[in-house]
Design a protein around this nucleic acid. Structure first.
Lengths: 323, 323
DNA sequence: GACACTTATACTCATAGTGAGCACAACTAG
DNA sequence: CTAGTTGTGCTCACTATGAGTATAAGTGTC
């Protein structure tokens, strides 16, 4: 190990799509690293090549194309991480600076190389999918977090109790779909996430880790959490859903995209009303001979809305109320 | 110059405050660099020290404290830039990776060292202050951008015309306070921003650059634009305004903070109604013997709102309507 | 002390947006 | 023809929002 630790600048991207009603993530095989098994998946990643790439965005586009064979449409920067000890590669010395991107594509459009595959997003965050109501897993999480609190010195409990309630919508607090990263980080801090142990070169100590979603290589699940949180927030005030749809689509498809990403169920009639009134879409007059049921009109995104509305998104996304 | 260009990881922070009714920025003297005159100011900045700092956030806190003598409260990451040619330091070879932060403080609380000073934000973006209505400068900008379009090949004009309208709220498009960075980047691309020429080792060619705000050192005005845009967006759904206020404050002070940051004027009575109903504040019963006029009640931030509202911010910020 | 001036605060009113449903239309499968 | 499925139109109560009028409670002037 050299005297001054080596800094590696690593770019990676959470590439999302929606197929049928599932949010999907593009993953690759991470290669051989200490603590990273064969069954772990990674986001497409690669080093920042400052001789080749004029900008970071170009670099991540090149990287994804080389690793997966597909090329990206919508791309936005997510976050830059450099926390010491959050990447098992650091166990061999050195320091990782990880610049993360979010990309949106149509799954069908992006071809994939052999090492690449699409996975369901909620395999990594089972507690984030509230489309069929409050997941039972939340109760297990609550119990595990309470246990964790008990084991802490009293001074350390201050604030953490409230953080738990706010993150997971416990007590009188409602569920906030946007707080994906806060929840993941809280679970990590509570040592319930498998990566906590992997980062330390150990095996998970608590049994619950096995049901808290599949682990990913490096700090990539944290990045996916950041990306999911970001797109849930952005859905409210930017027309991002259309990046995931073909030129024309039915309102049900659009609704499925919104539901898949937000993890919430939407009132169908009100969603229709909102989308049509908002000027976000325009009818094509064509109809899709549907999968059983009345044929649905095909709509297209109405670009002119960008000139008209200040925050063209799906403003109202409310979680299901309690009983 | 070495064979492989050297990568420098540089952290910097846009530290904002509001004094009276003006948004303020903490600046330092940039030091001696090619193209950077004595009158230019810079954001507090410094290299990422991977031996000292466990996280990027700690690094920026340390850096600001060392350069200005003050310590930060609220800090959030803004963006990571690495575009080739956007920093005059690169003229001497090498490549800058610039990780930018946004910080909010009370100006009165943050002491400043000799080299540091507070500047008015809108000195750098005069077109962003709509509190007294649409700035006349917008017309000059519109004319200059149209001139620029004329000089472009026809193919390059496609899309740019619409981008101009959307960015500056021309034609039937309304003003979107959030698009600070888009506007700055459009002006830069149109070669109207002084930094465009400084980055190329030249002097500004167009006379209008002199009235388009004060230039800053390096790419720091771009970062400030990012920060101002970010906080304007965040104002809508997070209670960030309170980071800039003391423990207790009058509703007018709160309104001034919101107006200063958003650059928009707010209807006083409706603002009161919103803030009181939202549960964001609670009265203290005490009153401030005001600066002329009826005494105003002192309020404090109601922390419990974080448990109650899903998006506790000043949701409605509309620009002035009309002709 | 009457007056103009300033800022704080209360209340009204028309309109638009939202959450929750009911009802019916138009297709498919058997 | 019937049950099942999905699409679409509409109602209704409630809340939020933009705009404005009116009044309260101080300050300073003459």
């Amino acid at each position: 190990m050299p005297d001054a630790p080596q800094l590696v600048v690593d770019l990676n991207a959470a590439v999302l799509a929606v197929t049928d009603d599932q949010p999907r993530l593009l993953t690759v095989a991470p290669g051989a690293y200490p603590g990273i098994g064969d069954d772990f998946r990674a986001l497409p990643f690669g080093p920042f090549d400052l001789e080749r790439d004029r900008t970071l965005e170009r670099c991540i586009r090149e990287t994804v194309t080389r690793q997966t064979g597909g090329s990206l449409g919508y791309v936005e920067q997510l976050y830059t991480f450099a926390d010491k000890g959050r990447d098992p590669r650091e166990l061999a010395g050195g320091r990782i600076l990880s610049i993360a991107y979010l990309a949106l594509v149509q799954e069908s459009v992006l071809e994939t190389a052999e090492d690449a595959s699409w996975e369901n997003c909620y395999d990594y965050f089972p507690w984030e999918d509230w489309r069929r109501g409050r997941p039972a897993l939340i109760d297990e999480i609550e119990a595990a977090l309470r246990d964790w609190l008990e084991g802490l010195p009293g001074a350390d409990r201050v604030g953490r109790r409230e953080r738990i309630d706010i993150c997971f919508g416990l007590g009188d607090v409602g569920w906030d779909a946007y707080k994906v990263l806060e929840r993941y980080e809280l679970l990590y801090e509570a040592q319930l996430i498998a990566e906590y142990w992997i980062d330390r070169g150990q095996s998970p100590a608590s049994a619950i880790s096995a049901v808290l979603g599949k682990p990913m290589a490096f700090d990539h699940r944290r990045i996916l959490a950041t990306g999911l949180g970001r797109i849930r927030g952005k859905l409210r005030y930017r027309p991002v859903a259309f990046e995931l749809l073909p030129e024309t689509f039915t309102l049900l498809r659009l609704q499925q995209v919104v539901e898949a990403l937000s993890g919430l169920q939407v009132h169908k009639q009100n969603f229709r009303r909102f989308v049509e009134r908002s000027g976000l879409v325009e009818g094509t007059g064509q109809h899709e001979v549907s999968t059983g049921g009345r044929p649905a009109e095909l709509f297209r995104f109405r670009r002119a809305v960008l000139r008209e509305r200040r925050a063209p998104g799906v403003a109202t996304l409310q979680p299901p109320r309690g009983p």
